[in-house]
């Protein structure tokens, strides 16, 4: 069985052409990253606003939970047959698909951005204000850089969810790696199905690792704790912190 899958994946013919693996992979990335871009445009500003002002934080917690329970696949099919005919031809399937992927991704980014800003050390925020920073300066120079680790992990999980779910848009006649799964099922070709599944899995893991690397280098070393030079006074610090316990 495994051999069959490997054979399918290693067959050069399956990789080329408009419905080959390469083309499908690019489609998959296109859907995913267009949706992710919209997610960031919506999630980060709103998250920053709520975190900075504290307005609407209750609504966030509630809706994030409810959205997690919403079955994406069902929502997609409902939108296509319920509203697809109201859209321009090119968007009948694409519109609902991107919409669903955005709905899927926004809660993770929004709630993590909000939580990241909320979690900034109140003393640092107080000091920033006390030194005469304006609200915008506090947000951009202090809150945003300190919230970055949480924001990025929200983006990361949104990205993974979107990559995974972009598979199902093949069910509504679109492309992407899900095509192999849907076509394999209807052609009773398990090797094609499993090949497609493995490609999605590898894509997700690869993007996750790539993101982890980016995350390491974007966040200030003062927050991640990866310092350039080992602290020469590490012993002193340790001794002092023990003494104060």
């Amino acid at each position: 069985m495994i051999n069959g899958i490997i054979e399918w994946l290693s067959d050069g013919e399956h990789w080329s052409g408009p419905d080959g693996i390469t083309a499908r992979l690019l489609e998959h990335l296109q859907y995913s990253f267009s949706a992710l871009a919209v997610v960031l445009l919506i999630g980060i500003p709103i998250g920053l606003y709520i975190g900075h002002t504290g307005k609407g934080s209750v609504a966030i917690a509630g809706s994030a939970n409810a959205l997690r329970a919403l079955p994406t696949f069902g929502l997609l099919l409902y939108l296509v047959i319920g509203y697809g005919d109201k859209l321009p031809t090119d968007w009948i399937y694409l519109g609902p698909s991107l919409f669903v992927l955005v709905v899927l991704g926004v809660p993770a980014v929004l709630s993590n951005t909000y939580a990241g800003v909320q979690n900034v050390d109140p003393a640092a925020r107080d000091a920033a204000k006390g030194m005469g920073m304006t609200g915008m300066q506090v947000l951009l120079r202090v809150e945003l850089p300190n919230a970055l680790p949480l924001i990025l992990s929200g983006v990361r999980s949104a990205m993974l969810q979107i990559i995974a779910t972009a598979t199902v848009v093949a069910y509504v006649t679109l492309g992407g790696l899900g095509r192999f799964i849907i076509d394999g099922l209807s052609q009773q070709d398990y090797f094609q199905m499993a090949g497609g599944a493995i490609l999605v899995a590898v894509l997700a893991v690869a993007l996750d690792l790539a993101f982890a690397v980016i995350q390491r280098y974007v966040v200030s070393r003062g927050i991640t704790g990866r310092y350039a030079a080992p602290a020469a006074n590490a012993d002193v610090v340790a001794a002092e912190s023990k003494a104060s316990v």
Partner: peptide, 20 residues
């Protein structure tokens, strides 16, 4: 974390080749 990264649909489909 790595296991959690694998999309669920992919896992459903790969299972038969592992479990028979």
């Amino acid at each position: 974390g790595l296991l959690y990264t694998v999309p669920s649909l992919a896992l459903f489909i790969i299972m038969p080749s592992i479990l028979g």
